[in-house]
Nucleic acid binder design. Structure first.
Lengths: 334, 334
DNA sequence: TTGTACGCGTTATCAG
DNA sequence: CTGATAACGCGTACAA
């Protein structure tokens, strides 16, 4: 299995201990000996076994990161950010995707434990996850857990996420003052924390204006992809034209709604204003300049990791950290 | 550092050896003892340390995978395929991205070695990589290497890739027989293996028809992204309208060329036929149905891993494996 | 059926 | 300045 410290030590005619000190550039080694050992190591293509190092140092240097999938631009942006910050801190990321599968999520948690990760970051997106008790496995192994983007209700842990409630209130107010009165929302499973926040935000904002947001105006998509959104939108706009404001969970959904609106004869933004929650559609590809709520991904990743290392350091008070969003006004709102 | 076998053994009142046998479901342990140990392990949330296991078994179970970046759909599709197959074989993937940075690529190779990966898969994409000698580090550590998608000239190793030469010959012939006579190609650095193959394919095909492919009709992009392609295309079509066939390196480039053509007053496909090398543009997002050369990603990933495990098993004859492509005819060709 | 002892590659502690 | 030696967590001959 590769080249070991022992081989280097033998080749240099010193003990493993001396070789180790020399290779790690630590004091207490004759400068000539050190150079000789280092030269030999280089010549033989030696790199210390990360495995053995972890064992000896009782520190894996791993952080486990769990996201729903990697094809989605939001998640890949978060992952890239996390990876970059961890690298700076001298940590390595173990990335796993859940693909919205609860069994897979549990399996990955076990995976993390067996790799002795020092902390775990989860973007929780499992629907109908009544009993996420398997996350307690982490606690049993003294591994801190931080939620990013959302959280599971039953689990005590810090979370770092966008101020979804504030963002939707803000967007709804904006639309209301532009004259919009009939609001719709297109998004995923209602029972997910982020979506309950969105519903509440719409209800509260409209109530302040003396209006109701009827819950059947929340179009719950079985799958949050283009096709499903498009089908639902087409069906809706075929049966009613009484709509002048739509907010969607992401850019794909917005594009689907946009296309369905156009086809049904409704004009954007003259008849209907459209706001997307994400700002992650590549502008080159997408001809439609979507008005959107931009999440501050850099801040989210930074704060998440800061908080995670707080936990690793032993500070165990849980925090709910909300990150401000920006409303970016483009061509799909008046 | 987590829960150890020793703790389980103590809690169960047996030796570590017995606990190990019990947990691994191996013979030679009283059935009651085994059950007791397993119950306790479950209750304590124990999972064996992957680190220690690798050390003891002298086998890491890791395969290192190196791709240019993960945002590109081609690479993410390959990575997903590789991960799925490795998982079935009981292996774990260590993924790293090079971001077209040679220093970073070397660093990652060293990283792989220190994790004692049992094999490495590289998608080579570094430009001007005259001396990829650092890959010899792998050989010094007895770690097999397979190239996927392309290869580096100086390095002896198997590679698995699309039959790029055949694909471009085929596409060029198709266009020629549709009446095209003035060909252009938009792609990356000419010195990359895959691009030299493409140039040669165009030259050979047109020569067979008694025509020349002038090398200045290969538009070499500094960066293979939309903007760069768009600028080059706009400039070209402003100075000449003598073009009736364009082949591009990927779908982003095709879209850029398409838009530049339209803006310059040329009609697709009536005036100009357009073929893209990739078939990875999400059809939902992209209104333009591109004619394209589809790579057979499932076959590429499967063959790559098969070949890698051949090498791991000790069979060290190098192979050049070419995978057939499909020409998918859509709306940008006559 | 169970326990002892050793090795895996490295770091760290202590003698010399 | 250098070299034994004991950990780290686990697997596995071998002995009891």
């Amino acid at each position: 299995m590769g080249i070991s410290l022992k081989k280097i030590a033998n080749a240099a005619g010193v003990s493993e201990a001396t070789a180790s000190l020399a290779l790690n550039n630590r004091p207490g080694v004759n400068i000539d000996t050190k150079k000789r050992v280092q030269d030999i190591a280089k010549k033989m293509g030696y790199f210390p076994s990360a495995n053995a190092q972890s064992l000896a140092k009782k520190k894996s240097g791993f952080i486990g990161v769990l996201v729903p999938n990697i094809a989605n631009l939001l998640y890949s942006a978060l992952v890239r950010g996390i990876e970059a910050i961890l690298r700076k801190r001298g940590y390595k990321m173990i990335l796993a995707t859940t693909e919205n599968n609860i069994d897979y999520e549990r399996e990955m948690i076990e995976h993390f434990i067996s790799f002795r990760v020092e902390g775990v970051i989860i973007y929780p997106m499992i629907q109908n996850n009544d009993d996420p008790a398997y996350l307690n496995l982490l606690k049993m192994n003294d591994i801190p857990l931080i939620f990013i983007g959302s959280y599971y209700k039953g689990i005590k842990a810090s979370h770092v996420m966008s101020d979804i409630y504030g963002a939707i209130c803000n967007a709804a107010e904006f639309l209301y003052h532009k004259g919009c009165r009939s609001f719709y929302y297109f998004g995923g499973c209602k029972s997910i924390v982020s979506n309950t926040l969105k519903i509440k935000a719409l209800q509260d904002t409209l109530k302040d204006e003396g209006q109701d947001f009827q819950e059947d105006h929340y179009i719950e998509l079985d799958q949050t992809n283009y096709e499903c959104a498009y089908e639902n939108a087409r069906k809706l706009f075929a049966s009613t034209k009484d709509v002048d404001a739509v907010i969607t969970a992401d850019a794909y959904t917005s594009l689907a709604v946009y296309n369905a609106l156009i086809e049904s004869g409704l004009k954007v933004p003259d008849d209907v204003s459209l706001i997307s929650f994400d700002n992650l559609m590549l502008p080159e590809i997408c001809a439609t300049r979507l008005t959107c709520i931009e999440q501050n991904i850099d801040v989210i990743t930074k704060d998440t990791i800061d908080e995670l290392f707080e936990k690793i350091a032993g500070n165990d008070t849980d925090k709910d950290i909300l990150i401000k969003t920006n409303l970016i006004i483009r061509d799909t709102t008046k």
